[in-house]
């Protein structure tokens, strides 16, 4: 996507960032920024002026805690905007390897965190059924989830065709 179109794409999603004052309340409130070097204010500035934001590693350091969004004096939906910029990046083929692996787990198991043998033992110890009442227990339900993922083209997006 053309960089200058990012703020338009955000606007289409109901996320106006042009009113940002660059006051820095967001960065000052960010629990991630203290340790990761992520500067929320700069993400918004870059997205606004059309600098290359899609390949900016800061984009993936947001824990989505929403504190910036809560405190923004302009009531800009900052966390939602970061999520939407991520969406644009992913559709440009930019995805961290670990996130690709999480995607593959959901495509294969219907769970981002599937069960393992150690937890099956814990379930037994608690007197519970080994498999929970989820897609793990019902293959036809997993097939439905996979049909939906394919219908949305998610398998292709995550680079792992069903």
């Amino acid at each position: 996507m053309n960089q200058s179109n990012i703020s338009n794409a955000l606007k289409d999603a109901g996320l106006e960032i042009l009113t940002c004052l660059q006051c820095g309340t967001c960065s000052g409130s960010c629990p991630s920024g203290r340790y990761t070097g992520m500067v929320t204010r700069k993400i918004i500035r870059k997205a606004r002026v059309g600098e290359d934001i899609l390949r900016d590693p800061d984009l993936w350091m947001c824990t989505t805690c929403y504190t910036c969004q809560e405190r923004c004096p302009r009531e800009i939906k900052i966390a939602d905007a970061i999520l939407t910029i991520r969406t644009i990046a992913v559709h440009e083929g930019i995805m961290l390897p670990a996130h690709r692996r999480v995607s593959e787990l959901v495509i294969e198991h219907g769970h981002a965190v599937p069960i393992n043998d150690a937890v099956k033992e814990k379930r037994k110890k608690l007197g519970m059924e080994t498999l929970p009442e989820t897609v793990h227990k019902y293959p036809e339900a997993l097939a439905d989830v996979q049909t939906l993922l394919k219908s949305c083209g998610f398998d292709k997006l995550a680079g792992s065709e069903i």
């Binding site: 824990t63 989505t64 999520l83 991520r86 969406t87 992913v90 559709h91 995805m95 996130h99 999480v102 995607s103 959901v106 219907g110 769970h111 981002a112 965190v113 009442e133 989820t134 897609v135 227990k137 019902y138 036809e140 339900a141 997993l142 439905d144 989830v145 939906l148 993922l149 219908s151 949305c152 083209g153 998610f154 997006l157 995550a158």
Partner: peptide, 29 residues
């Protein structure tokens, strides 16, 4: 009661970031 056959919600931080249609399809199911 139990909710047989439910899947991942899907995880908001990643799936909601990746693709809105996929997030809504899995969540709505």
């Amino acid at each position: 009661s139990d909710l047989p056959g439910a899947s991942c919600c899907p995880a908001p931080g990643v799936f909601r970031s990746f693709d809105k249609a996929t997030w809504l399809a899995l969540a709505s199911r």
